[in-house]
Every structure is written in structure tokens, then in C-alpha cells.
């Protein structure tokens, strides 16, 4: 007769093994007991378990069959509570007694074939610290540049103040995602979320600056509400990365959420601004940004060309008034 060996694994809320015990049954013995008592083969430190709560029998074909020994709380198998039940098959080899989740492994279990080991594809998973440090440095440099550009009287104080405010907001954002990771994945993952937050923010302000400078260099028309969509794209990227690293959501669903929320926000903001500006007679949707003259690549328009197209401006002004009146409920009717 052979000796049955059982490995009992304690699982946490995320299904990960907290610790394990190896159990060797006596010769010819094919069952063991679980309970709070030291007389049980597997002793639980759980006030919701009975002294001798259950027995588990290893059938000849390797199946595990659990029986309740008359406990008050019964057994929880596959999410369902069973009381006074005998010979209950543990389909996934897991069993919950009281608040303790156990996974039972025997020599009869079928092991999955060995998987080839690959280094993590995501740089975030491989070296989040480096990315967070580089992104943080990029953010600080850009904030320092923005402060320097405005030529304040006390440069150091202004730069530190601005960087402190931005980093404090980033810390709050990272804290929220860290908390979500802790709840859903059991790990804080500070560095990953820090890298995501700072990296996306640094990329956003860099792209925005490039769009502005590029517009000046090439004398392009102002982007209008383009900044809203750029911000939405940055938010979508950040949300996707945060979600995939903080939650067990599959990538496709995370992408759906990450794109959906910013798209809704941007569309709402765009609609609100457009709707609001239809009737805002004081808003001027133009912002002249000036950069060093040496950057200019495109020749200036001739003044004649500008004023020859004046009629188009009049038509647009007339249309804007017509749109505003059309948008006005019950247009005045004064006599």
C-alpha cells in the first residue's frame, strides 16, 4: 500500500497561495480531517470553523470528496454553502471552511504542461523605477522650463511651487491607483503607477508644446479645441495602463473603458463649449502665441490677400449671429 500525500494551500482573497502545509497520510489511509482542534489533521485558525469541521476523502480515481461533520457553518464549495452533506466532490479542488479558503493538491492532480518562460514584455513590469524616474525628471524639467519662460522675479521659488503642486496632484492620482491595485491585485505597485502618471503627463505637455511651436513655425491655424482631444488621448492612454496594471480586467475591456471615459468627457466638453460659445457674444476663440522669430519657416501672407478675403469674415460673423438666434428659444418677439 502506498502513502497518500496531500498539500494543503491557504489562499487569499485573490486566489493566491499564502502558505502551504504538506500532509502525509498513514499507510492505507485515504482521508483526513480539517477543523479548529489540534486533533484535526489540518488545524485552522478560524473562529468560524468547528473543532472537527470536515473530512476530505481521496477517491480511488483521485477525486476529492468532502463531508461536513455537522458544523454550524457547513462547507462552501463552488460559491455555494452545503450543510450536513457527505461525499461532496471538490471539482476545482478548493474548499472554504468558515473564512478560510483551502486548495488541496494530491498526486492525482493533472498538472498543466510546462510553459516556456519569457521575460515580461512590458517595460513597466520590468523596470518601472527607471521609467518613473525618467518621466518624473522630464516633468520637472518641463515645469522648470515653463517657469523660466515666464521670467519671474524669484525663479527658484516659482519653479519649486509649480513643481510641488504638480507632483502633489500626481501623488494623489498615483495613490488612488495604488489603492485600487492593492484591493484588486494585492500589491500597491507604486512605481508602475508613478511611471504611468508621470510618463503620460510628460508626453502630454511635450506634445502640446510641440503643437504650439509647430503652429507658429509653419503659420498653421490655431488648433481650436484640439487641446481637448489631445488631453483626452493622454487620459485614455493613462487609464488603459493603470487599469491593466491595477485590475484583472482583460486588455480589450480595459481599452474599452479607457477610451470610453475620456471620449465621453471630451465630447461633453466639446459640445458644452460649442453650445456655450454659440451664444457667447464676448468670447473670442483665438489665441496668438509668439515664439522666437528665428523659428519661422513660412513666409507671411500679403496684406492684400488678407483683406481681399474680408467678405468671408463678414459671412462668418453673419452666420454666427444667425446660429445664435436659431439657438435661442422663442427668439425675442419684441415690437
Amino acid at each position: 500500500m502506498s502513502v497518500e500525500r496531500v498539500v494543503v494551500e491557504w489562499l487569499d482573497g485573490h486566489g493566491r497561495v499564502q502558505w502551504r502545509e504538506r500532509l502525509a497520510l498513514g499507510e492505507g489511509r485515504r482521508s483526513f480531517t480539517i477543523g479548529r482542534s489540534v486533533e484535526a489533521d489540518v488545524t485552522l485558525d478560524d473562529p468560524h470553523a468547528a473543532a472537527l469541521h470536515a473530512t476530505v476523502e481521496i477517491a480511488d480515481d483521485g477525486r476529492l470528496l468532502a463531508s461536513d461533520l455537522g458544523s454550524a457553518n457547513g462547507l462552501i464549495v463552488c460559491g455555494k454553502r452545503w450543510r450536513n452533506t457527505r461525499g461532496l466532490e471538490l471539482a476545482d479542488n478548493t474548499l472554504q471552511i468558515g473564512r478560510t479558503r483551502l486548495q488541496l493538491r494530491t498526486v492525482h492532480e493533472r498538472l498543466a504542461p510546462e510553459r516556456p518562460y519569457e521575460l515580461p514584455a512590458s517595460a513597466l513590469a520590468r523596470g518601472p523605477g527607471w521609467i518613473a524616474a525618467i518621466a518624473g525628471l522630464a516633468c520637472v524639467l518641463q515645469l522648470v522650463y515653463a517657469t523660466w519662460l515666464s521670467a519671474p522675479r524669484d525663479f527658484a521659488v516659482s519653479a519649486v511651487s509649480l513643481a510641488s503642486v504638480v507632483l502633489a496632484v500626481a501623488a494623489g492620482w498615483v495613490g488612488l491607483w495604488g489603492l485600487l491595485s492593492r484591493v484588486m491585485q494585492g500589491e500597491w505597485r507604486w512605481l508602475r503607477h508613478g511611471a504611468i502618471c508621470l510618463g503620460v503627463f510628460a508626453a502630454f505637455i511635450a506634445v502640446r508644446a510641440m503643437v504650439e511651436v509647430g503652429g507658429f513655425v509653419l503659420a498653421l491655424p490655431p488648433p481650436g479645441n484640439g487641446h481637448i482631444w489631445l488631453g483626452a488621448a493622454a487620459l485614455a492612454g493613462a487609464l488603459f495602463l493603470h487599469l491593466t496594471h491595477a485590475s484583472p480586467l482583460p486588455a480589450r475591456r480595459a481599452a474599452l473603458i479607457a477610451c470610453g471615459i475620456p471620449a465621453l468627457l471630451a465630447a461633453g466638453s466639446h459640445w458644452f463649449q460649442a453650445h456655450d460659445q454659440v451664444r457667447d457674444v464676448n468670447h473670442i476663440d483665438a489665441r496668438m502665441r509668439i515664439y522666437p522669430p528665428a523659428l519661422r519657416l513660412r513666409a507671411a501672407d500679403k496684406l492684400d490677400d488678407y483683406f481681399n478675403k474680408a467678405n468671408a469674415l463678414r459671412e462668418r460673423a453673419n452666420k454666427r449671429l444667425a446660429d445664435a438666434l436659431a439657438d435661442e428659444p422663442g427668439s425675442d418677439g419684441e415690437n
Binding site: A219, P222, L303
Partner: peptide, 16 residues
């Protein structure tokens, strides 16, 4: 005020 005037339309370019 909207009861007096409509919204602005603008044209913005670099000219010589």
C-alpha cells in the same frame, strides 16, 4: 449682450 450683438468671428494670420 446677446440681445444687442452676435458672437465674434475671427481671422488670424501672419502678414507682411
Amino acid at each position: 449682450l446677446l440681445r444687442h450683438v452676435g458672437p465674434y468671428a475671427c481671422d488670424d494670420r501672419v502678414v507682411g
